[in-house]
Deep mutational scan, measured.
Amino acid sequence: MTYRVRIENADGEVVTIEISADELREKGLTLEELLPPNARIVEVEEVEP
Rank of each mutant, 00 (worst) to 15 (best):
L24C: 04
A39D: 02
Y3M: 06
E23M: 13
G28F: 04
A21C: 06
M1P: 08
E45A: 06
E26V: 12
V5T: 01
P36T: 04
E46Q: 09
K27F: 08
R6I: 13
P36N: 03
S20V: 04
R25T: 08
P36L: 04
K27D: 02
G12P: 00
Y3C: 05
T16W: 13
P37F: 10
T30L: 05
E32K: 10
L34Q: 02
K27W: 10
L29M: 12
E32R: 09
Y3I: 06
E8V: 14
E13V: 13
V5I: 12
K27N: 08
L31P: 01
T2Y: 15
A10F: 11
R25K: 10
T16A: 04
L35W: 03
V14Q: 10
R25Q: 07
E23F: 15
E46T: 14
T30S: 10
E13K: 11
I19E: 00
E46V: 15
V42R: 03
R4G: 00
L34K: 03
V14S: 07
Y3G: 00
D11V: 08
L31D: 00
S20I: 04
E18C: 11
V5G: 00
R25L: 11
G12F: 03
T2P: 01
S20M: 07
N9K: 15
L29R: 07
S20L: 07
N38H: 10
G12W: 01
E13P: 02
V14K: 06
I41Y: 03
V47L: 11
E33N: 08
P49L: 14
A10T: 08
R25G: 05
P37G: 05
V44Q: 02
P37E: 10
L24D: 00
E43C: 14
I19M: 03
L31W: 06
P37L: 10
R40K: 13
E26M: 13
V15H: 10
I7R: 00
V44H: 02
A10M: 12
L29K: 10
A21V: 09
L24Y: 03
I17W: 14
G28I: 03
N38M: 07
P36I: 03
I17M: 09
E46D: 04
I7H: 02
E13A: 10
T30D: 04
T30R: 10
V14E: 09
E45S: 09
Y3V: 03
E23H: 08
V44K: 03
E33G: 07
D22H: 11
V5D: 00
P49K: 11
D11R: 09
D11F: 11
V44S: 02
E8Q: 13
D11P: 04
